[in-house]
Amino acid sequence: MPPLKILIVDDDADVVLFLSTVLKDHGYLTIDAQDGQEGLEKAKSVQPDLILLDLMMPKKSGISMLSDLAGDGATEKIPVIMVTGVSGETGIDLETFFRGSSTGKQDRKAIIPEGFIKKPVDPEELIRLVRKALK
């Protein structure tokens, strides 16, 4: 069985390096993208088994990319784990945001992420979530 491909989308090169090292050590293949736009292109072309997606990025944010993934038949089935560095300060509660319960808006087709992991990322927690998402 060929190794599973994971696409890491984050504008912080250090985060990409760290996540990819952890994943590679556990036998995954990683591909990376610096922003949402590049991430969307690579998702289509590479067809990864899982996407690790940062929230705040230049050109296209994680949320915007998520919605584009959902709107495209070629990508809508790829599971996504949101990697969030957002603290409570911005007032965004991601769980609530994605369940739509606070806004009640469902006008855009959206993928509900398979999971959320907070920065600083704990390697074991990451692997646990990745395995669960890939089951």
């Binding site: 250090d14 985060v15 390096l17 760290f18 090292t21 952890v22 590679k24 050590d25 920065k119 600083p120 390697p123």
Partner: peptide
């Protein structure tokens, strides 16, 4: 967190004897 990540990468690189990855981890 960044430093820990760097240390993780360097450790991983050492065990794999991957000098290029050591450099990247050290850069971090």
């Amino acid at each position: 967190t960044g430093l820990k990540g760097g240390a993780y990468v360097i450790n991983s690189a050492i065990s794999k004897k991957d000098l290029e990855l050591v450099k990247e981890g050290w850069g971090m």
